[in-house]
Design a protein around this nucleic acid. Structure first.
Ligand code: ZN
Ligand code: ZN
Ligand code: ZN
Ligand code: ZN
Lengths: 148, 148
DNA sequence: CTAGTAGTTGCAATAGTTTGCATTAAGCAT
DNA sequence: ATGCTTAATGCAAACTATTGCAACTACTAG
């Protein structure tokens, strides 16, 4: 069973239909890996399934996101990016607004943050691809800008 | 001195030029208040200054953001929103991905979170309009969806 | 296997955002 | 006041994202 087929079974299990388009899109993002934009997924998936429309990519990724299989990742600049979720390892990102650098946050720190928020507010943060914007160590010490 | 003029002085102090467009845009967002989208600011500001181009709104808000006078607020759906920064009270938002509800986070909780992150990673989170996506108390107890 | 239902797709129109470039004008120095 | 320098604006085009609707098809029930 290919990884596309495995993912197809997973979305069927969540009550969504398995279509050729969804099969190809899942296969594509699984093989490309990483953090992809819709146009990137589109041009790769269209090669496997001519006639595929870019609207279908947007809608499929939204569906997969609601199904918990794909994460959104918006860094504050450029197009929104999507990534296949790794259920075993929830990572997040720190985006420096000065140098555009993107760092990873590891799972345990995210878990601590989420714990504090849920205790204070009752709100459960989604630990997958938690994205925080600020200023990195380097940029802060270079004094390019003070955050007020 | 109107609030628009006061803000104009502030951006001049940060090294940016004061133009009629910027004066009108500042006056407009100060009087409208709240969390505004670019199209909203545009249609209001254009009434005061005919000929104003929407591109100028985008660029001015980006400039004001870099100057620390305006915050970005992207909730994961709809257009990006902007708000005049209140330097005395940094608030943030919790966005429920189930019911679209937006709650406020108060400053002290944000300060705690930022402290934990900077201690672990050296990264300084911008406390203004910190926005976290997840599931609210109500939606979680109603079991509309489990977060994995 | 067949028919019905409802979720999904493609297409076109629309909305929101960014970029390049020529023109204009704010702030500064004389 | 006058001219210089460079930031800022307007405009057009490209890019990114969303929505409405008709046609289609995956799934289910019989
Ligand atoms: Zn940086
Ligand atoms: Zn990631
Ligand atoms: Zn909710
Ligand atoms: Zn706010």
């Amino acid at each position: 069973m290919s990884c596309g087929e495995k993912l197809a079974e997973e979305i069927r299990g969540k009550g969504f239909r398995v279509t050729p388009q969804r099969g190809v899109i899942l296969e594509t993002i699984a093989h490309m890996g990483g953090h992809l934009s819709v146009p990137e997924v589109f041009s790769a998936a269209r090669d496997r399934l001519p006639g595929l429309n870019i609207t279908t990519i947007y809608r499929t990724l939204e569906t997969l996101h609601r199904a918990g299989m794909v994460d959104l990742f918006y860094s504050g600049s450029g197009p929104t990016r999507f990534a296949l979720r790794d259920p075993d390892q929830a990572h997040g990102h720190l985006v420096c607004s000065e140098c555009e650098q993107v760092m990873d946050i590891d799972e345990s720190l995210i878990a601590h943050l989420a714990e504090e928020v849920v205790r204070e507010t009752g709100f459960s943060i989604d630990p997958h691809h938690l994205t925080l914007v600020g200023v990195c160590d380097d940029c802060l010490s270079e004094g390019k800008r003070r955050i007020s």
